[in-house]
Amino acid sequence: MLTLIRGANLYTPVPQGKMDVLIAGGKVVDFQPLIKLDSNTEVKIIDAKGCILTPGFVDSLVHITGGGGEAGFASRTPEMNLTDASLYGITTVIAALGTDSSSRTLHNLIAKAKGLKELGLNVFCHTGSYHLPAKTLTGSVTNDLMYIEEFIGVGEVAISDHRSSQPTIQQLAELAAESKVAGMLSGKKGTISIHVGPIDSHLDILHQIDKNTDIALSQFYPTHMNRNKALLDAGIAFCQQGGSIDFTTSTTDYDLAHGEYAAARALAYCLDKGVDPSLLTMSSDGHASLPIFDDKFNLIGLEVGKESSLLHAFTQAVHEYGISIEHALMAVTSNPAQVLGINKGTLTLGGDADLLLLNEKTLVPQHVWSNGIHMVEDNKAIVKGAFE
Rank of each mutant, 00 (worst) to 15 (best):
M1W: 04
G7A: 10
A8C: 14
P15A: 11
P15Q: 08
G17E: 02
G17S: 05
M19Q: 15
D20H: 03
V21A: 07
L22F: 08
I23G: 00
V28G: 04
F31Y: 15
K36R: 12
S39D: 00
L53A: 11
P55F: 07
G56C: 11
H63P: 00
G69A: 09
A71V: 09
G72F: 10
M80H: 03
M80I: 15
M80N: 05
A85D: 02
T91R: 01
A96C: 15
D100P: 10
S102H: 15
R104T: 03
H107M: 10
I110V: 15
A111S: 10
K117S: 05
G120M: 04
G128E: 06
Y130G: 10
E150F: 01
E150N: 14
F151K: 01
G153R: 05
G153Q: 09
G155I: 08
R163D: 10
R163W: 03
Q166L: 15
S179M: 02
V181H: 11
A182L: 07
I192H: 03
S193Q: 14
D200N: 13
L203W: 02
I205M: 04
A216C: 08
Q219M: 12
Y221K: 09
T223C: 09
N226I: 06
N226K: 07
L232H: 03
L232P: 02
A234N: 13
G242C: 12
T248L: 13
T251R: 02
H258C: 06
L267T: 03
C270H: 01
L271H: 02
D272W: 02
K273R: 14
G274F: 11
L280S: 07
D285F: 09
I292Y: 03
L299S: 13
I300C: 10
E303V: 03
E307F: 04
S308H: 07
L310G: 07
L311N: 12
F314S: 08
T315Q: 13
E320H: 13
E320S: 14
I325F: 06
L329N: 04
M330P: 00
A331C: 08
T333Y: 04
G350R: 10
D354P: 05
L357D: 03
L358S: 07
K361I: 11
K361S: 12
H374S: 12
M375W: 01
K380V: 14
K380Q: 15
K384W: 00
G385Y: 00
G385I: 01
G385C: 02
E388F: 09
